[in-house]
Protein backbone atom coordinates (compact mmCIF):
# COMPACT_ATOMS: atom_id res chain seq x y z
CA UNK A 1 0.00 0.00 0.00
CA UNK A 2 2.71 2.44 1.06
CA UNK A 3 4.73 1.66 -2.06
CA UNK A 4 1.68 2.18 -4.20
CA UNK A 5 1.00 5.56 -2.61
CA UNK A 6 4.63 6.59 -2.99
CA UNK A 7 4.70 5.52 -6.61
CA UNK A 8 1.54 7.42 -7.43
CA UNK A 9 2.61 10.54 -5.60
CA UNK A 10 6.11 10.49 -7.10
CA UNK A 11 4.54 10.20 -10.54
CA UNK A 12 2.74 13.51 -10.11
CA UNK A 13 5.67 15.38 -8.60
CA UNK A 14 6.76 16.80 -11.98
CA UNK A 15 3.23 18.08 -12.59
CA UNK A 16 3.16 19.68 -9.15
CA UNK A 17 6.55 21.32 -9.68
CA UNK A 18 5.39 22.55 -13.06
CA UNK A 19 2.29 24.09 -11.52
CA UNK A 20 4.35 25.75 -8.78
CA UNK A 21 6.79 27.11 -11.32
CA UNK A 22 4.01 28.43 -13.54
CA UNK A 23 2.35 30.08 -10.57
CA UNK A 24 5.62 31.66 -9.46
CA UNK A 25 6.41 32.98 -12.94
CA UNK A 26 2.95 34.43 -13.48
CA UNK A 27 2.88 35.96 -10.02
CA UNK A 28 6.35 37.43 -10.47
CA UNK A 29 5.36 38.91 -13.82
CA UNK A 30 2.14 40.32 -12.38
CA UNK A 31 3.63 42.20 -9.48
CA UNK A 32 6.34 42.49 -6.88
CA UNK A 33 4.51 40.66 -4.09
CA UNK A 34 4.72 37.23 -5.65
CA UNK A 35 6.29 35.50 -2.68
CA UNK A 36 3.44 36.65 -0.45
CA UNK A 37 0.92 35.56 -3.08
CA UNK A 38 2.34 32.06 -3.20
CA UNK A 39 2.51 31.90 0.56
CA UNK A 40 -1.10 33.02 0.95
CA UNK A 41 -2.31 30.49 -1.61
CA UNK A 42 -0.42 27.68 0.13
CA UNK A 43 -1.70 28.75 3.54
CA UNK A 44 -5.29 28.73 2.29
CA UNK A 45 -5.10 25.20 0.84
CA UNK A 46 -5.60 23.21 4.10
CA UNK A 47 -8.98 24.85 4.65
CA UNK A 48 -10.07 23.81 1.15
CA UNK A 49 -8.69 20.34 1.70
CA UNK A 50 -10.71 20.06 4.92
CA UNK A 51 -13.81 20.78 2.88
CA UNK A 52 -13.04 18.64 -0.16
CA UNK A 53 -11.60 15.50 1.39
CA UNK A 54 -14.48 14.53 3.72
CA UNK A 55 -16.99 15.34 1.00
CA UNK A 56 -15.23 13.09 -1.50
CA UNK A 57 -14.74 10.24 0.93
CA UNK A 58 -18.30 10.39 2.19
CA UNK A 59 -19.77 10.84 -1.27
CA UNK A 60 -17.83 8.02 -2.88
CA UNK A 61 -18.45 5.45 -0.18
CA UNK A 62 -22.14 6.24 0.36
CA UNK A 63 -22.72 6.60 -3.36
CA UNK A 64 -21.12 3.24 -4.10
CA UNK A 65 -23.15 1.62 -1.35
CA UNK A 66 -26.41 3.09 -2.64
CA UNK A 67 -25.43 2.35 -6.22
CA UNK A 68 -24.94 -1.39 -5.74
CA UNK A 69 -28.22 -1.59 -3.80
CA UNK A 70 -30.15 -0.14 -6.73
CA UNK A 71 -33.38 1.71 -5.96
CA UNK A 72 -32.40 4.94 -4.22
CA UNK A 73 -28.94 4.72 -5.77
CA UNK A 74 -30.39 4.61 -9.27
CA UNK A 75 -32.54 7.66 -8.51
CA UNK A 76 -29.58 9.53 -7.05
CA UNK A 77 -27.47 8.65 -10.08
CA UNK A 78 -30.27 9.68 -12.40
CA UNK A 79 -30.69 13.18 -10.98
CA UNK A 80 -26.94 13.59 -10.49
CA UNK A 81 -26.28 15.53 -13.68
CA UNK A 82 -28.96 18.07 -12.71
CA UNK A 83 -27.23 19.05 -9.49
CA UNK A 84 -23.69 20.22 -9.87
CA UNK A 85 -22.07 21.26 -6.62
CA UNK A 86 -22.18 25.02 -7.25
CA UNK A 87 -25.91 24.91 -7.93
CA UNK A 88 -26.58 22.94 -4.75
CA UNK A 89 -24.43 25.40 -2.83
CA UNK A 90 -26.46 28.32 -4.19
CA UNK A 91 -29.75 26.63 -3.37
CA UNK A 92 -28.62 25.78 0.16
CA UNK A 93 -27.24 29.26 0.69
CA UNK A 94 -30.49 30.89 -0.37
CA UNK A 95 -32.89 28.61 1.47
CA UNK A 96 -31.41 27.15 4.65
CA UNK A 97 -28.34 29.06 5.68
CA UNK A 98 -28.47 27.56 9.18
CA UNK A 99 -25.54 25.16 9.38
CA UNK A 100 -23.13 26.29 6.69
CA UNK A 101 -20.47 23.70 7.47
CA UNK A 102 -22.74 20.72 7.01
CA UNK A 103 -24.49 22.34 4.06
CA UNK A 104 -21.23 23.02 2.28
CA UNK A 105 -20.20 19.44 2.85
CA UNK A 106 -23.53 18.18 1.52
CA UNK A 107 -23.33 20.39 -1.55
CA UNK A 108 -19.98 18.82 -2.41
CA UNK A 109 -20.74 15.27 -1.33
CA UNK A 110 -24.04 14.88 -3.19
CA UNK A 111 -22.68 15.22 -6.73
CA UNK A 112 -19.77 12.92 -5.87
CA UNK A 113 -22.22 10.41 -4.44
CA UNK A 114 -24.42 10.63 -7.52
CA UNK A 115 -21.50 9.88 -9.80
CA UNK A 116 -20.32 7.04 -7.58
CA UNK A 117 -23.83 5.61 -7.51
CA UNK A 118 -24.08 5.65 -11.29
CA UNK A 119 -20.71 3.96 -11.75
CA UNK A 120 -21.32 1.40 -9.02
CA UNK A 121 -24.78 0.59 -10.34
CA UNK A 122 -23.40 0.13 -13.83
CA UNK A 123 -20.62 -2.09 -12.49
CA UNK A 124 -23.11 -4.24 -10.66
CA UNK A 125 -25.34 -4.58 -13.69
CA UNK A 126 -22.31 -5.51 -15.80
CA UNK A 127 -21.10 -8.08 -13.29
CA UNK A 128 -24.52 -9.67 -12.83
CA UNK A 129 -24.14 -12.15 -15.68
CA UNK A 130 -20.42 -12.69 -15.34
CA UNK A 131 -18.61 -12.46 -12.04
CA UNK A 132 -21.70 -12.58 -9.84
CA UNK A 133 -23.28 -15.47 -11.72
CA UNK A 134 -20.02 -17.38 -11.52
CA UNK A 135 -19.82 -16.76 -7.76
CA UNK A 136 -23.42 -17.88 -7.32
CA UNK A 137 -22.65 -20.95 -9.40
CA UNK A 138 -19.94 -21.79 -6.87
CA UNK A 139 -22.54 -21.58 -4.12
CA UNK A 140 -21.89 -18.09 -2.78
CA UNK A 141 -24.96 -16.01 -2.05
CA UNK A 142 -26.75 -13.63 0.27
CA UNK A 143 -24.81 -11.24 2.42
CA UNK A 144 -21.47 -12.96 1.75
CA UNK A 145 -21.87 -12.14 -1.94
CA UNK A 146 -22.89 -8.58 -1.19
CA UNK A 147 -20.08 -7.76 1.22
CA UNK A 148 -17.28 -9.75 -0.29
CA UNK A 149 -17.91 -9.18 -3.97
CA UNK A 150 -20.69 -6.79 -4.98
CA UNK A 151 -19.68 -3.93 -2.72
CA UNK A 152 -15.94 -4.09 -3.47
CA UNK A 153 -16.72 -4.21 -7.19
CA UNK A 154 -19.02 -1.21 -6.87
CA UNK A 155 -16.51 0.69 -4.78
CA UNK A 156 -13.77 -0.06 -7.28
CA UNK A 157 -15.91 1.22 -10.14
CA UNK A 158 -16.78 4.35 -8.18
CA UNK A 159 -13.11 4.96 -7.50
CA UNK A 160 -12.39 4.56 -11.17
CA UNK A 161 -14.25 7.84 -11.65
CA UNK A 162 -12.43 9.55 -8.83
CA UNK A 163 -10.29 11.71 -11.10
CA UNK A 164 -13.23 13.61 -12.54
CA UNK A 165 -14.94 13.59 -9.15
CA UNK A 166 -11.95 15.32 -7.56
CA UNK A 167 -11.83 17.96 -10.29
CA UNK A 168 -15.58 18.56 -9.97
CA UNK A 169 -15.46 18.78 -6.19
CA UNK A 170 -12.57 21.24 -6.13
CA UNK A 171 -14.40 23.39 -8.68
CA UNK A 172 -17.57 23.33 -6.62
CA UNK A 173 -15.58 24.07 -3.46
CA UNK A 174 -14.83 27.51 -4.90
CA UNK A 175 -18.54 28.28 -5.11
CA UNK A 176 -19.16 26.86 -1.62
CA UNK A 177 -16.39 28.90 -0.03
CA UNK A 178 -17.47 32.03 -1.83
CA UNK A 179 -21.19 31.69 -1.08
CA UNK A 180 -20.85 30.56 2.54
CA UNK A 181 -18.05 33.03 3.23
CA UNK A 182 -15.56 30.39 4.36
CA UNK A 183 -11.88 31.09 4.12
CA UNK A 184 -9.88 28.91 1.80
CA UNK A 185 -8.10 28.84 -1.52
CA UNK A 186 -11.40 29.16 -3.39
CA UNK A 187 -12.40 32.26 -1.50
CA UNK A 188 -8.94 33.68 -2.04
CA UNK A 189 -9.18 32.93 -5.74
CA UNK A 190 -12.56 34.58 -6.19
CA UNK A 191 -11.58 37.69 -4.29
CA UNK A 192 -8.31 38.06 -6.13
CA UNK A 193 -10.06 37.56 -9.46
CA UNK A 194 -12.71 40.15 -8.57
CA UNK A 195 -10.01 42.60 -7.57
CA UNK A 196 -8.06 41.87 -10.74
CA UNK A 197 -5.05 40.64 -8.75
CA UNK A 198 -3.50 38.39 -11.37
CA UNK A 199 -0.68 37.03 -9.25
CA UNK A 200 -2.82 36.04 -6.30
CA UNK A 201 -5.63 34.60 -8.43
CA UNK A 202 -3.25 32.53 -10.49
CA UNK A 203 -1.37 31.31 -7.45
CA UNK A 204 -4.63 30.24 -5.80
CA UNK A 205 -5.76 28.47 -8.97
CA UNK A 206 -2.42 26.70 -9.31
CA UNK A 207 -2.71 25.66 -5.69
CA UNK A 208 -6.11 24.15 -6.29
CA UNK A 209 -4.87 22.38 -9.42
CA UNK A 210 -2.02 20.93 -7.38
CA UNK A 211 -4.49 19.82 -4.74
CA UNK A 212 -6.56 18.11 -7.43
CA UNK A 213 -3.57 16.32 -8.88
CA UNK A 214 -2.42 15.16 -5.47
CA UNK A 215 -5.86 13.96 -4.40
CA UNK A 216 -6.30 12.13 -7.71
CA UNK A 217 -2.99 10.39 -7.20
CA UNK A 218 -3.96 9.34 -3.68
CA UNK A 219 -7.34 8.21 -4.97
CA UNK A 220 -5.59 6.18 -7.65
CA UNK A 221 -3.41 4.52 -5.03
CA UNK A 222 -6.47 3.69 -2.94
CA UNK A 223 -8.19 2.32 -6.02
CA UNK A 224 -5.19 0.13 -6.65
CA UNK A 225 -5.38 -1.08 -3.07
CA UNK A 226 -8.96 -2.23 -3.56
CA UNK A 227 -8.66 -3.44 -7.12
CA UNK A 228 -5.44 -5.15 -8.23
CA UNK A 229 -6.33 -4.43 -11.87
CA UNK A 230 -5.86 -0.71 -11.23
CA UNK A 231 -2.35 -1.16 -9.86
CA UNK A 232 -0.72 -1.45 -13.24
CA UNK A 233 -1.69 1.89 -14.73
Amino acid sequence: MLRLVLRRVLAVVPALLGLALAAAVVAALAGPGWVEALGAALAALPATLALVLPALALGTVLGALLGVMGGAGAVLGGVGPAMPGFLLAAVFAATLAKAPVLLGLAALALPAAAQAATLAGRARAGAEDTVLLAARGRGMDGSALLWRLVLPLGLSAAMGGLRSAVAGTVTAAVAVESLFGRTGAGQLFVEAARAGDTGMAFAALAGMCGLTVLLSALGGALHGFIDPRARMA
Binding site: V166, T171, V174, A192, G196, L205, M208
Partner: peptide, 20 residues
Protein backbone atom coordinates in the same frame (compact mmCIF):
# COMPACT_ATOMS: atom_id res chain seq x y z
CA UNK B 1 -5.73 13.67 -20.90
CA UNK B 2 -3.90 15.53 -18.13
CA UNK B 3 -6.08 18.61 -18.57
CA UNK B 4 -9.31 16.63 -18.16
CA UNK B 5 -8.24 15.81 -14.62
CA UNK B 6 -7.86 19.47 -13.56
CA UNK B 7 -10.52 21.91 -12.35
CA UNK B 8 -10.38 23.59 -15.75
CA UNK B 9 -13.74 25.31 -15.33
CA UNK B 10 -12.03 27.73 -12.94
CA UNK B 11 -10.10 29.23 -15.84
CA UNK B 12 -13.27 31.06 -16.91
CA UNK B 13 -13.75 33.08 -13.68
CA UNK B 14 -10.01 33.71 -13.66
CA UNK B 15 -10.08 35.26 -17.11
CA UNK B 16 -13.35 37.01 -16.28
CA UNK B 17 -11.73 38.63 -13.26
CA UNK B 18 -8.58 39.61 -15.08
CA UNK B 19 -10.47 41.19 -17.96
CA UNK B 20 -12.46 43.28 -15.49
Amino acid sequence: AALTGLPLALALPLVGGLLG
